[in-house]
Write a protein that binds this DNA or RNA. Structure first.
Ligand SMILES: [Mn+2]
Ligand SMILES: [Mn+2]
Ligand SMILES: [Mn+2]
Ligand SMILES: [Mn+2]
Lengths: 231, 231
DNA sequence: TATAAGTTTTAGCGTCGTCTAATTCGACAC
DNA sequence: GTGTCGAATTAGACGACGCTAAAACTTATA
């Protein structure tokens, strides 16, 4: 297993969760910043090792072995992010790039010790679930994209995509961090979402709002809990 | 700079300190577990980049740039070792292999934060000096190989080679750790050295004794300080 | 159902780091 | 001087990964 192969498996895992299998060559190429021919040849190699199921021209799907490997890398990534934030003073917006490299280069011993010193955390600083030592896919956490919220909803920020530094810095300054409660005050054309957070209001372009996932507030299952204005 | 190139520079640096320049192709090959032709071709590349001075068939020597790079990697290695021991509960005999990989994959930010959280340590868990942020070669620490000590000498363990796990475990169990004071009670033929440490006595084969460096006890400069029996 | 558009794969190439086998070099002994 | 032997380099190959350009396939549309 090279670090390159690990990145492919991780990418396929995440794309499967986002869009469902099968995952296309071009989706992987986009996410990894490689060209499609490069991806095709790596997919052949992964299929040879039976880490993925592949149907030519149709796309790929992780095998059980491949999924386990992907979860292992994801566990490393998220444990490292949590550790950097908790013990080395990184902010949650700085953590991703460091983890993206280190995830491939730590020993199982290191993984164990980091997990122990963190007391086996369930989520990383972006709110993403950390796979357990069993390497089973984490259960659905019940969050949904902010873009699916209606005006008047009060929701808790559950997860924020960790892939874009700038976006993360922006959300950080806006006070939109995992755990915060916000109220949706407007949904404009083209998906721009305006939320009330702490004192002020923040407007998020569709692209940003789509990468923020929210959950209904406390023991509230889906029904808007205060203002009942439609949109 | 690939991680492979970094390992070559680090190896050349250490070999220069141990044997002095020029460093031979085969010495590098031995230390790195590569074949001589492999080393030759990497040396050509390093010479192209002016990281080393090279005279064909004669050997190589680090350039100023190459030495700085080597010290950077060494700083990473030793800071990481110190951090693993101090903050993650590794024993000083477990630390080396983890650091040997991680040294190539941490950011400058990570280096800074680790150094800060350790309060800028001067030595790693094996007693080896950690190069400072200035990346100047550390000054001579006044230690010398245990094999040069005479019977009757009381000395402090200064440094222990970190390259052999088994040897390290053995020394650890024997109580021969950096900072301990020992007395040389015998030097047998073929270099076997017997020292008194704590209660008991420990005999070390020449190969092991050669990798242990000692310093005269407290403000003592070279003159044997108690028993004065020759050998 | 034929064709065009977009996606994917194939072909062919380059770089990096590694190896084995063959050759060349240098130092030392005679 | 010349020969010999060990060390170093050259020659030639290979596996990973990456790319561009060309060909093949799928799918959506006319
Ligand atoms: Mn990665
Ligand atoms: Mn994350
Ligand atoms: Mn290394
Ligand atoms: Mn060390």
């Amino acid at each position: 297993m090279s670090d390159v192969m690990e990145d492919y498996l991780k990418a396929i895992y995440v794309l499967e969760s986002e869009e469902g299998p099968p995952v296309s060559t071009s989706a992987i190429a986009d996410r990894l910043g490689k060209t499609p021919p490069t991806v095709t040849s790596m997919l052949e190699k992964l299929a040879d090792r039976e880490l993925i199921h592949r149907e030519k021209y149709k796309g790929v799907e992780l095998s059980d072995d491949g999924r386990t490997l992907a979860l292992e890398v994801l566990r490393h990534h998220r444990l490292i992010e949590a550790y950097l934030a908790e013990h080395l003073g990184y902010s949650w917006s700085e953590v991703h790039d460091e983890a993206d490299t280190l995830e491939h280069h730590i020993s199982e011993e290191f993984e164990r010790r980091v997990a122990a010193s963190l007391d086996d955390p369930a989520v990383d600083p972006h709110g993403d679930p950390i796979p357990g030592i069993d390497l089973e896919p984490p259960a659905d956490d019940g969050s949904r994209p902010l873009t699916t919220a209606a005006v008047g909803d009060r929701v808790v920020i559950a997860r924020v995509s960790d892939r874009d530094d700038e976006e993360l810095e922006y959300l950080d300054r806006a006070g939109i961090v995992p755990g915060t409660t916000v109220e949706v005050v407007d949904v404009a054309p083209f998906g721009m979402v305006t939320v009330a957070v702490d004192g002020g209001e923040q407007s998020l372009p569709e692209s940003v709002a789509a990468s923020v996932r929210v959950r209904a507030t406390e023991a509230d299952n889906g029904v808007p809990d205060e203002e009942v204005s439609g949109a």
